[in-house]
Amino acid sequence: MSSTHANPTSFAFTEANMKLVEKAIKKYPEGRQMSAVKSLLDLAQRQMGAQTGSIWLPRAAMDKVAEILGVAPMRVYEVATFYTMFNLQPVGKYHLQVCTTTPCWLRGSDDIVRACKAASGVKNFGETSEDGVFTLKEVECLGACVNAPILQVNDDYYEDMDAARVEALLNDLRAGKPLPPAGSLGGRQSSAPASGQTSLVSAPGSAE
């Protein structure tokens, strides 16, 4: 990993984030501050992303969260390591998360993985491309099976993927273009049938 993503020895929330931290903690009753742990870890991770260009969670940040919540660091490590959404290693600018669970797999997630590897230059899951732009991960069901297969890039879902769409998307991102709007890249509206509308094709009340 490049030196820009060196493991920091200390971490502090920005003033703006500190306000959000306090807001998150206030949602829970006194003595139950630990409930805010995931919100705080997410804030810390996003702050790392804004500050270093890599959305990840160094140990110093987890320790800071533990300090703020007044719990043992171990309790925070347990939460942070449980969820794949928390990156405990630095990741590239674009974090590619391919769902390979059954519905996506049936709809061709193997092709998506292959295309991701070819277009990003990443050889194996969990690795980052040499230019530091892409990190590829395999994830479990993203809960958008109806538009399978899914490729999640950072926070956004790109649906109805195929190899060509993956290649085009990744090439655009590498070229510095911004992320396109999230959703189906196959042109359908949210989860409407891919082959066009199949029900409610006539006005209400008219004979079918």
Binding site: R59, V71, A72, P73, M74, R75, Y77, E78, T81, F82
Partner: peptide, 19 residues
Amino acid sequence: VAELGATQRGEETKVGTYV
């Protein structure tokens, strides 16, 4: 002394000190 915990999940679960 809350030094031990279970990190990761599923088959990867590890009981340990993490650090």
